[in-house]
Amino acid sequence: MSAAAREVILRRIRSAVEGAPEAEIVRGYRGATGERGDVELFAERVRDYKAIVHVVPRAEVAATLAEITGGRVLTVPAGFPSDMYAPSEGEPDGVVSTCAVAVAETGTIVLDAGPGQGTRAQTLVPDYHLCVVRDDQIVPNVPDAIARLDPTRPLTWISGPSATSDIELNRVEGVHGPRTLEVVIAIG
């Protein structure tokens, strides 16, 4: 049945567009720049989503993580730099991860299941997500992010904590994904 449906649909398409002029794609918009993204802009845009943001020198990341996670037990995905955070014993109530790319203009973090990022579920189910972003991972805009990413990997784009606009079209934070997103940007 499926094979027949496939042929019928393809045939319908061909007859529908027969004789229609070829349509050329026009790309006049700003494309990928290949440049580094602005750290301050990224921090500001992430804060706009009501996430907590810290900007610290690379050498101080470990100390910052220790300070903000004091008392918490976090899941640490495989490949997370061990000199930054050491897992502690107990039932985790959050997750710490790295990321693949971050977008300054939109305040977005992208995970691609690479080292330190875990599976998609690992950064989803806990109520708290702590993400470490290196400044060289920040790109200016969306086209730069697309250029850097590998579509064959599972990708999750995260812009702030989970939210909904379903009640009177106003954004409120905190539904099914992590209700708290904390971002540590490592500079230098």
């Binding site: 845009r45 599976t119 064959t152 784009w157 939210a163």
Partner: peptide
């Protein structure tokens, strides 16, 4: 759509994943 610079979550997957 929601008048945001970016929506909170976007998932992308290719074929059977994880």
């Amino acid at each position: 759509s929601t008048g945001e610079r970016m929506n909170p979550y976007t998932s992308m997957w290719t074929g059977a994943t994880e």
